Simulated scan of single mutants.
Amino acid sequence: MQSDTATKFSHIKPADTEFKSGGLRDFFLYRDLGVADATGGKVIAHLVRANMAPEAGTGWHRHEAEFQIVIMTKGWAKFMYEDKVTLVEAGDVVHQRPGIRHFLFDYSPDMEYLEIVSPADFKTVDVEAVCDTPSPTPWK
């Protein structure tokens, strides 16, 4: 059984934290959900929201992480996972296996997703393109 001091109880309400820039991508906004602090850096959970129209996307990359899950809460996003286009819509859940090469190249103006990753200080590594990537849909 885990010790009571290994993690802390956390309860974050929408008014407790706000969406901010300064995360991994400048075209997204991030809302910290307090999980990294509560778990001593074992896990991070944040909401990610579209902030600007997709132009170049995230580029091809992979994460050095033990676990990563994306739960689309609003809108949609199109990813390349290896050489496959994957449309992720509100309600969809994606488990990104460790090291999978991917590229988020298109998303709706209302896109928002919950991302949970372990460890909290995971690294992102740029990789060579796996294949050609479709163009994003222009926002109106």
Score class of each variant (00 low, 15 high):
residue 97 R to M: 08
residue 42 K to C: 06
residue 62 R to A: 13
residue 80 M to K: 07
residue 59 G to W: 14
residue 114 L to H: 07
residue 124 T to Y: 03
residue 60 W to M: 07
residue 90 A to Y: 13
residue 59 G to F: 12
residue 125 V to A: 01
residue 39 T to S: 12
residue 85 V to D: 08
residue 76 W to A: 10
residue 92 D to C: 14
residue 58 T to Y: 02
residue 40 G to P: 02
residue 36 A to L: 05
residue 63 H to M: 08
residue 76 W to D: 01
residue 110 D to T: 02
residue 75 G to T: 05
residue 96 Q to F: 07
residue 104 L to R: 03
residue 115 E to Q: 09
residue 63 H to Y: 07
residue 119 P to N: 06
residue 113 Y to S: 02
residue 91 G to Q: 03
residue 46 H to Q: 14
residue 63 H to L: 11
residue 95 H to S: 08
residue 104 L to D: 11
residue 37 D to N: 12
residue 80 M to G: 00
residue 76 W to R: 09
residue 101 R to K: 15
residue 116 I to K: 04
residue 98 P to K: 13
residue 93 V to Q: 10
residue 81 Y to L: 15
residue 122 F to T: 04
residue 42 K to G: 11
residue 122 F to S: 11
residue 62 R to N: 15
residue 104 L to I: 11
residue 71 I to M: 15
residue 52 M to V: 03
residue 74 K to R: 15
residue 44 I to G: 09
residue 54 P to W: 02
residue 95 H to Q: 13
residue 39 T to F: 02
residue 118 S to Y: 10
residue 76 W to I: 00
residue 74 K to C: 11
residue 42 K to L: 15
residue 66 E to D: 14
residue 55 E to L: 11
residue 105 F to W: 13
residue 105 F to P: 02
residue 63 H to P: 03
residue 77 A to E: 06
residue 84 K to A: 05
residue 86 T to C: 05
residue 118 S to M: 12
residue 45 A to M: 14
residue 101 R to M: 10
residue 74 K to G: 04
residue 56 A to P: 01
residue 113 Y to M: 11
residue 70 V to K: 08
residue 119 P to S: 02
residue 116 I to W: 11
residue 49 R to M: 10
residue 119 P to E: 10
residue 92 D to S: 13
residue 108 S to T: 06
residue 62 R to I: 08
residue 89 E to M: 09
residue 75 G to M: 06
residue 126 D to S: 14
residue 43 V to K: 06
residue 53 A to W: 01
residue 79 F to L: 10
residue 95 H to E: 14
residue 38 A to E: 09
residue 43 V to M: 13
residue 125 V to Y: 06
residue 53 A to P: 09
residue 38 A to T: 09
residue 85 V to H: 05
residue 53 A to E: 12
residue 60 W to T: 06
residue 47 L to I: 07
residue 82 E to D: 13
residue 99 G to H: 09
residue 81 Y to H: 15
residue 104 L to A: 14
residue 56 A to H: 12
residue 36 A to C: 07
residue 115 E to F: 04
residue 114 L to S: 12
residue 40 G to M: 05
residue 106 D to Q: 02
residue 89 E to W: 01
residue 74 K to Y: 01
residue 65 A to T: 11
residue 38 A to D: 10
residue 99 G to Q: 10
residue 39 T to I: 07
residue 61 H to I: 05
residue 108 S to K: 05
residue 60 W to V: 05
residue 67 F to I: 03
residue 51 N to V: 00
residue 96 Q to W: 02
residue 52 M to S: 14
residue 43 V to Y: 15
residue 90 A to L: 07
residue 52 M to Q: 15
residue 97 R to A: 04
residue 49 R to I: 01
residue 54 P to R: 09
residue 69 I to S: 07
residue 68 Q to R: 14
residue 69 I to V: 14
residue 75 G to F: 08
residue 99 G to F: 04
residue 58 T to M: 03
residue 126 D to T: 12
residue 87 L to P: 00
residue 60 W to I: 11
residue 42 K to H: 13
residue 38 A to F: 08
residue 112 E to M: 11
residue 108 S to V: 06
residue 46 H to N: 14
residue 79 F to V: 04
residue 72 M to T: 15
residue 123 K to M: 13
residue 127 V to Y: 10
residue 100 I to G: 00
residue 90 A to Q: 10
residue 53 A to K: 04
residue 74 K to N: 14
residue 123 K to V: 07
residue 79 F to K: 02
residue 110 D to K: 00
